[in-house]
Nucleic acid binder design. Structure first.
Lengths: 199, 199
DNA sequence: ACGGTGAAGCAAACATCTGTGCTTACGATG
DNA sequence: CATCGTAAGCACAGATGTTTGCTTCACCGT
């Protein structure tokens, strides 16, 4: 007994990368479990098996942590590819989006984008970083299309007719139509070029 | 001294209705001021000049209070009128929405709708009552239009092309185009019947 | 006018979140 | 192999939010 008690601090420590991974996963888990209500730093830390000070020191705030997790996950699961045509790019983006928001996790992530915004009146300009990057990527799609001689719609219109429906459905948990939804949205946006889709 | 000190409790008490009104206004004020970050029960109580226990006992939770305020205000500022035609109804609704989300207060209110939802996986069905009521009202507009012999688009499409753009802009704080936006949205939705609006 | 019910106010306990100083392990560098 | 810097873990303190028991007033019906 006296021998074994001579362990001042046999504490096992996680590497920074392990901490990062565990915390990210914990955020996802708690997001799925309680929907963000009990998404507090101590709770996340406990769920991740990490000391809460590690989270405070590394991320500083709940919002920053959320933004980090959301950006990482969403840019992995909902990427922006280059298919060679404007219609192809937009359709691919919409398809990835539909796939994403069919899963509870995907919906929660999009919702968390809104949650992670400070929105403090005077920070109006800073918006969600994620959302800004997303819009910037849309800009790049448009520029590529323009360089090819295509005539892309303005960003505002893409926002209204492509981004808004997908994001809103994610946020409010409204399932998209069972089939053909990505094509439907793109058709509405670009017009049905030689394909009478809308009845 | 003995006389004036003989005031056991000269406390002035607000009537339940005064409390309700003051608290609602305080929520709006703090929402506009700090964007919801400092929207805590004690802060609301102090700003309203009410004891915080009154709030805790009456509303129970911050979410319930928010939902109450939001529903009340939004249904007053963003109503659903009957203008006699489908296009008129939808345009009026969109105009009210645009006016609403031009003010910081309106944006925050809509944002609060999205964020106040429990959304805990299993509560998927319960979603925002506000949003359900809103959709139900849209249904009524459609029914009225159908009764008049008009051919209203399906709810899904109204959701995608009218509700989604307005709500998304509110949630992410993106200002709508300066002029003609309500008409633009309705034109996209119903088609430009004898009015070549889209360039 | 009288008494009962309900809700607001007060105070204090209670729980929880947030932040800091320090110690200690891990990995990189010479 | 020794040393140094970085970051995780621990303990504790401070602040903030939440809840409860009790008192007191206002309203409403009898």
């Amino acid at each position: 007994m006296g021998v074994t008690s001579k362990q001042p601090t046999p504490r096992i420590r996680k590497s920074p990368e392990q901490v990062r991974s565990a915390v990210h996963q914990a955020v996802i888990d708690l997001l799925s479990a309680s929907g963000g209500a009990e998404l507090t730093i101590p709770a996340i830390a406990q769920h991740a098996g990490v000391n809460h000070t590690s989270i405070y020191r590394r991320w500083g705030s709940r919002e920053a942590l959320l933004a980090d997790v959301v950006t990482t996950r969403l840019e992995r699961d909902w990427p922006l590819n280059d298919t060679g045509t404007l219609r192809g790019d937009l359709t691919a983006w919409a398809e990835a989006g539909v796939a994403s928001i069919r899963t509870p996790e995907g919906r929660l992530l999009v919702r968390a984008v809104a949650l992670s915004m400070p929105s403090s009146g005077h920070m109006q300009a800073e918006r969600a970083q994620h959302f800004q990057r997303r819009l910037h990527s849309i800009e790049r799609i448009r520029e590529r299309a323009a360089a090819r001689g295509e005539n892309p719609p303005p960003v505002e219109q893409i926002l209204d007719q492509l981004i808004a429906p997908l994001y809103l459905r994610a946020i409010f948990g409204i399932d998209p139509p069972a089939s053909g939804y990505p094509e439907l949205l793109v058709d509405r946006l670009l017009g049905t070029t030689g394909a009478p889709g809308t009845a």
